[in-house]
Design a binder for these strands. Sequence first.
RNA 1: CCCCUCGUAGCUUAAUGGAUAAAGCAGGACUCUUCUAAGGUCUUGAUGGGGGUUCGAUUCCCUCCGAGGGGACCA
Length: 563
Amino acid sequence: MIKRWLKNKIQEYYQDTAFDVLTPPDDKMGDYSINLAFVLAKKNGTSPIEEGQKIVEKFKADREFSDRFGEINFVNPGFVNLFLSEKFIQEQLTKVYKKRDSYGTSKIGEGKTVIIEYGGTNIAKPMHVGHLRSTIIGDGLANVYEMLGYKVVRWNYIGDWGTQFGNLIAAYKLWGNEKELKKKPIQTMLNLYVRFHDELKNNPDLRSRGREELKKLEEGDAEDRKLWEMFREYSLDEFDKIFQQLDIKFDITKGESGYEMVIGETVEFIEQKGILKKSEGADIIELEGLPPTLIRKSDGASLYITRDIASLKERIEEYKPEKILYVVANQQALHFEQLFAVWRMLGFSGTDLIHVKFGMVLGEDGKKLATREGKGIPLQELIDKIVALAGKVVREKNPKLSEKEADEISKAVGIGALKYNDLKQHPRTDIAFDWSAMLDFSGNSGPYLQYTYARLSSILAKAGNRKAGNPALLVEAEEQRVAKRLLEFPDSVEKCSEFYSLNGLALYLYELSNDANRFYESVRILGDMNIERINARLMLIETVAVVLGRGLKILGIGSLPRI
RNA sequence: CCCCUCGUAGCUUAAUGGAUAAAGCAGGACUCUUCUAAGGUCUUGAUGGGGGUUCGAUUCCCUCCGAGGGGACCA
């Protein structure tokens, strides 16, 4: 907010000159810092010192600068530092307090639609920790775009078609039975899947059996169709349960099978554009700078990308989105490069297609967790474990809670820990799954933020009725620090949409909590002789609580008045 | 063999080309007659190796080493 103002303002003085406005980590150096002196020195053949001094003089003479910044200095080796004035911070705090319930929202997305694809669950396989990343990153980004005024379509593109279902049906016919399936649907399907791949090593004939079943399925064979529907139903029920626990919602749950019917016309559409080629009996598209992509197998069956093209075409025609975000693992980078390249070759444009990639979740040994070998950590197990631990901690810390309240808090804390642990990290890197870090509720963790929220809420609850405070009474360093931090919230939200990641917002909320806790420890708010000062401080912490709560909500994490 | 990620403290991670590389965990020392100690304060400790571009490189380029992912009938 202030940064942008500063940038625009300076641009008036120094047009066509590149510079950065920084927010230095240490307040000894200033609240904002610009590196213009270097650039000008180089441009004019002078020294940075000379230029820096000139800039300072210029800024000091300008009322708009001097109103905002109490102090403007030039420091070697070439930075002009600006300190926000106490008065300006106090004025801003009043403004933020007034609009606290909508603070950070904007209209930059008004009239625009963004489709966000996340979740990416595969029928007949249990959700594992990898799905968690897609789900919570996607959900968080959806929340961000909503705050920025976009119309958001939350889309769970499920993997419910393709070769693996042929395999599954074949396996079921060989070794499965309905009784067992009913009792433990997902586990049974997974066992069949794993067994199929195990036995395939010694019995390659299985592969053709799987292909046959897929072919029958695609041709509408009644028995296979019924089995597929059953597998799908059981799986979706299971996913719903998990999404509910994670507080994740979708507008659309439509996967690959939803495009099976339009494959023919999609291929025809591609053919009309004249980019389809025959190669070794299959239909392919040759791409520039990328390996060719297979559109139709030699036996005529469709492939993953074929269905993705069909879906993309539909999405664009139906929603005319400004952007489509695919929140899908790194491993599929090539697939999306190919998809986007095909899309351009088909003559589409005007929509930003973005593959929001994220790294894998590795095992504690740093190795891949393969579902095929049955090594993946099932998400349900993880949720149960973390909520159970949260329950233990909650009851230990706060024994007076009722059972019902303790349960509710345990869920919020456990799920909060789980989500925050992932979101605080940069999405692109692989993360090593670390039970002890995941289950640690201290330090930079979800529960720490929730704890801060609860502490502040507790004061507000005890304070009872009060009048609006006068922020001019907030002169202590700890108070100023918190107030300044509040001003960074809108920037932090906007950056999430710029970088397609939420770790910046997570860090911001952690720092806000940090500042708030320092303030909390530095003074005793209630019980002050000065009623006016109590009111001013309550106003400050109320703003922090609201901003913190809203920030957590973007991350999909609940905040409770007591934990 | 080719392409893409990545390599930061004992461990897990931060850092739009900026200042003295930031945290958490683990280790050490303090801190509850006071609004929630899941807290606060202090402390030990790091950019894989070698070049280059730049006033300035964790960040950009080259190279070497190491890890992971991907590379036509899987998704």
